[in-house]
Amino acid sequence: MSTILHITASIRNDESVSRSLGNRLVERLAENQGAIVVTRDLAKNDLPYIDVERFAANLAPYAERSPEQHELAKISDELIGELQEAETIVFSLPVYNFAVPATLKAWADLVARAGTTFRYAENGSEGLLTGKKVYLTIASGGMPIGSEIDFMTPWLKFFLGFLGMTDVELVAADGIMGEGGEEKIAEAHQEVEKLAA
């Protein structure tokens, strides 16, 4: 049975447009694929920020870690395991101040591990999380996705590609706090239905 990993980050919970889009996409994909769904809600703010001790623990070979390093690396191991197990990954993200929520950056710092999710090769880095399908369901109050002030989607696509995930589809409900916001949300939901069909 295949696995879908759903990563959410909006603090708005049930009122979240990005979460609503992602939930619908995940529901449809799971139905079509007969997949199980694993959800990682970053809005719970339960991920630690990387520091020098945690960084060292994450890079230490498993068999050589001290008990303290095993404890420090536990959450990173768990997050990486979720990525490795999933065939499909859906990110449901709001735009906060032109970029990703801080909780997603904390997640990224914990899953980028040399030798596990990427490696250094002769011609540069090589992503090790290949063969996965990724969907981004994004909501923005005012910032147009794909514009010169969109610092979120280029960074996110680059980071995912750095880890080997290059098959990425994007559904955006952007500028939804302005005129025609409800129509933009409805259009994004229609796009979700097309993607999941």
Rank of each mutant, 00 (worst) to 15 (best):
G81K: 08
G115N: 05
R113C: 06
V17C: 09
D174M: 10
S92T: 02
E179N: 04
M1H: 09
S2R: 11
V168H: 09
E85P: 06
I75A: 00
I138T: 13
V52L: 11
A43R: 00
R113K: 12
F55C: 08
K44V: 04
G164M: 05
L79P: 04
E187R: 15
E64D: 14
H70C: 12
F158I: 09
M165C: 12
S2A: 12
M165N: 06
N13I: 02
G131P: 13
N123M: 11
T116S: 09
T88I: 05
T153R: 06
H189W: 13
V37M: 02
L195D: 08
Q33F: 05
L29S: 01
E87F: 01
S76P: 04
P144Y: 09
D51P: 01
I7K: 00
N13W: 04
A86D: 02
N97Y: 01
I50G: 06
R40W: 00
I138N: 13
E78K: 01
T3L: 07
M152C: 10
N123T: 11
H70P: 04
A186R: 15
P94L: 01
A9Q: 00
A173N: 09
V171I: 11
E122Q: 15
A86E: 03
T137E: 06
G141R: 12
A56H: 10
N97G: 00
I50R: 09
E82Q: 02
K184E: 14
L110K: 04
P48D: 14
F162G: 06
E169W: 13
E126S: 03
D167Q: 06
E27V: 00
E169I: 07
I138D: 12
T103G: 07
N45M: 03
E53I: 05
Q190D: 12
R40Q: 00
S2G: 04
R24V: 05
L42F: 00
S140H: 05
L160K: 07
A9I: 00
L160Q: 06
G175M: 07
P48V: 14
L59R: 15
E15V: 11
G181S: 09
D46H: 00
T117I: 07
G146D: 03
L110S: 06
I138L: 14
R119P: 08
H6E: 05
L110C: 05
T130L: 09
M165V: 10
E64K: 14
G115D: 04
P67Q: 02
N123L: 12
I36T: 12
V37N: 01
I75T: 02
T116L: 11
E64P: 02
R19L: 13
L47M: 02
E148G: 09
A63F: 13
L5Q: 10
